[in-house]
Design a protein around this nucleic acid. Structure first.
Lengths: 109, 109
DNA sequence: CAAATAGTCAAGCAAATACTTAAGTATTTG
DNA sequence: CAAATACTTAAGTATTTGCTTGACTATTTG
C-alpha cells in the first residue's frame, strides 16, 4: 500500500506546469475529448497531447479511445498521492487546524 | 482571503522539482541551517541556496539569518495553498472518503 | 469511396532550468 | 587579528522542457 517515491515525483512534476494544471481544472468539471480539452489553449493539438501523456503517466488522468475519439477524465489516484505527500510534510498543528476547519465547514454546508 | 493563481503556480512549480521536495522532506523533520540542509545533496552549496530561494518565494519555507548562519524551516502557508488546490479539483466523493478516513484515523491515534 | 474528422508520431528548435565555478562578504573562533 | 566558517553573488554552461511543423493512420460521414 506504500507509494513509491518515483510515483509522487511524476505527480508533482506533472502538476508543476501551468498548462497541465489548467487541463486538470478543465477536466475536473467533467470528462471530455482531446480536441474539446485542447480548445481554449493557444497551442497545437500535438502539444496538448504531449501534456496529456504526462498527466496520464502520473496517474492524474485516465483516457480511453472509442472509435476515433479519445475521452479523458480525472483519475483521483494521482491527486490522492499528492495530497498524502503534502499531509505528511505539513507540521502536525497545521493538520489539526485543517481538521477543525473541515468540521466547521461541514456545518456551514 | 482568496488565493491568487500566481501563488498556486509558484508552489506547484517549486514542488515539481525532486531536489526541492527532498529539501521539504528534510525540513519536515525540523528546522536546520543551510549547510546542514545541503549536506546529503551531491551538488554545490550555491545550487542548494538557489533551490531554497524558490521554496521561500513560494511560501513553502521561511528562513532567518542569525549571525553568519541562516536557519530554515517549513512554512505551512505554501503547502496549504497546494492542498486547497488539490482538494478543490478532486471529485467530491473522494473528498468525502478522505474526511471519513480522517475521522477513523483520529480514533486510532 | 472520397472527404472530413480526430488523433498520432517524429524530428527539431528556442527558452527555461539546474548546476557549476570562482571570487567576495560578514561573522565567529583560536 | 588571522584563519576558518557560513553563506552570497555573478556569470557561464549544459540539459530539459514546451512547443512547432509536417507527414501519417484510423474512423466516420455525405
Amino acid at each position: 500500500m506504500k507509494k513509491k517515491a518515483a510515483d509522487v515525483d511524476r505527480v508533482f512534476h506533472a502538476l508543476g506546469d501551468m498548462t497541465r494544471r489548467a487541463m486538470m481544472e478543465r477536466l475536473s468539471r467533467g470528462p471530455m475529448s482531446v480536441s474539446l480539452l485542447a480548445e481554449p489553449f493557444k497551442m497545437s493539438l500535438a502539444a496538448v497531447v504531449q501534456h496529456l501523456q504526462i498527466l496520464e503517466e502520473a496517474g492524474l488522468v485516465k483516457t480511453e479511445k472509442v472509435g476515433r475519439v479519445r475521452s479523458c477524465r480525472i483519475e483521483s489516484a494521482g491527486l490522492d498521492s499528492a495530497a498524502n505527500w503534502i499531509g505528511a510534510r505539513r507540521p502536525e498543528w497545521a493538520r489539526r487546524l485543517d481538521r477543525l476547519e473541515d468540521i466547521l465547514t461541514e456545518k456551514g454546508k
